[in-house]
Nucleic acid binder design. Structure first.
Ligand code: FES
Ligand code: FES
Lengths: 135, 135
DNA sequence: AGCATTTAAGACTCTTTTGTCTTAAATGTA
DNA sequence: TACATTTAAGACAAAAGAGTCTTAAATGCT
């Protein structure tokens, strides 16, 4: 599994926020109901996104979370980086301690291409791109 | 992390077997020393490969494990399939219960391409290809 | 037959990930 | 000020992954 469960949830949540919010804050409760993700678990994940500067949060009545930047300016890579980190693109496919063009393993070249594809996909797809799929 | 730790170890082990064995059985002990993988843990992983028909094993003095098919006929995909399964290529990137061309999520198309790349890489690279890298 | 070697198998522990629950803090509203 | 709403935070539990250890079974050698 490339993305952790938390990261999958984070992406689903951000997609939901971008689709459902009309500029106001969207309560975590609503996101949980919409996506089916456990409320409390989702809360923690969204905290990470808030700390990472991807979401704003506001407490109290009419509070909730909202995107800091526009959907067009927020990419999948931002979310993955915040939740899982970018290690996937730097780690050796065989788990060897170092992965660089100097100290290579047998998979390094093939693997590098795949990682690059993946990073490019994650970076080039904005949240806006993705929600337009549902329209 | 795409490949599990066990799967990384399995690949390392098979590469070692292909490189070090001269037709005889290679003891798990030797593979563990060579790769630095814990002996007992490696034992379990190699059992899985044996059950999957990738390795033969033989007990007793001069026993060990050996490739069933030649290094040229054994692919990375065989190993990954045996240890981790092929779920990675069928699972929805967002963890949604179904992933098919009918019931798509926003990432389905992009994700599909990446999975295909990955499968092709794993399938097209034989163990022989990989060990020739070290020569 | 007896011994040393080597894989097989399962119990067990440790760590990480995933998920739940409870309480605190902030904030708008009446 | 009192209250309802909503996020923040941390303790706790459950499940999965990773790793260790012990014992059993098979086999070759003397
Ligand atoms: S060294 Fe193994 S993938 Fe780079
Ligand atoms: S439905 Fe999500 S990747 Fe196929």
């Amino acid at each position: 599994m490339l993305l952790s469960k938390s990261c999958e949830y984070a992406i689903q949540a951000v997609l939901t926020i971008a689709r459902k919010s009309d500029g106001d804050y969207l309560p975590v409760r609503k996101i949980a109901d919409e996506t089916g993700i456990s409320y409390h678990f989702l809360g923690k994940i969204l905290q990470t996104l808030t700390k990472a500067g991807i979401l704003n949060s506001y407490k109290g009545p009419n509070g909730g979370v909202a995107l800091v930047r526009s959907a067009a300016e927020t990419t999948l890579l931002d979310i993955v980086a915040a939740v899982d980190g970018l290690g996937f693109a730097q780690r050796c496919a065989l788990g060897l301690p170092k992965c660089s063009d100097e100290s290579q393993c047998a998979l390094h070249e093939d693997w590098g291409k795949i990682c690059k594809n993946m990073s490019q996909m994650l970076e080039s797809r904005s949240i806006l791109d993705l929600i337009s799929f549902y329209k």
